[in-house]
Amino acid sequence: MTAPAIAQPAARRKEGFSAFEMFVFALVVALLAIAVFGPFFAPDSIYSSDIANSLMPPSAANWFGTDDQGRDVFWRLIVGAQTTLLSAFLVVTLYSLIGVTIATVAAAGPRWLDEGLMRITDIGLALPGMIVALGFAAAMGASLRSAVIAMAITGWPITARMLRGIMRQTMEQPFVAGAQVLGVSKWRLMTKHVLPNSLDVLIVKWAGDIGTTVLVLASLSFIGVGAQPPSAEWGATIASARGYVSTAWWTVVAPGAAVAITSIAFGLLGDIIQVRRDPSLRGN
């Protein structure tokens, strides 16, 4: 009965990636490369308006056409990719840090503290995140920075709740009792033994969250509480182009597609990592 269990870990190591998985990886790598290096190659003209060339359809000179200011849509997307992805990374990293801190304190602390923090988390979970972020951002004054801060302080409850549960499970493992018997401090117990063995799931969530955050950030910018024009951020770009949907569709479709592709790519990356980690999910 032990034999299949022996075969498993070896199986996981040996297996190659499917064509679809390779495609998703390539897409994510391409998006990251574009966001990091793309803006270096952008022509200066995208920052100045050229009314004579406004709303030109896609052509050899302007692959995705030009917008109402006569700026090249393609290069604005590339520059916007950096703003958008960087902001999304920042948001997810910030709220993950908050979530990890709260989860660790709750898991390590006495019962009353755990209970208290989890009730606060429950309240956070019950509130609709985007609406609260909208409120925060509006109160701080509409800007990309406000939107990032607002999302960072509203995004942590899911992470905190999930991680605290996983850490409690990890704390049941024999090696944690072993560390206690050895006499390690509470700080070392949590940071060296419990936390590193609980973070795996966060990596999965992190990839998926980038995708959702790109979408939410674009939405906030679209309704005017995030990045402001002339920023090339995708949501802001869509917002300023929305008047031209019927006359110059490319000005809206291009950034819209960029948002969709990016959020789907990171979402799929999260799914792939999750399935890879848990062989029982395979075959779906």
Binding site: A3, P4, A7, A11, K14, E15, G16, R282
Partner: peptide, 8 residues
């Protein structure tokens, strides 16, 4: 026993 989906 098969090793995952690799065919080996």
């Amino acid at each position: 026993m098969p090793l995952g989906r690799s065919g080996s």
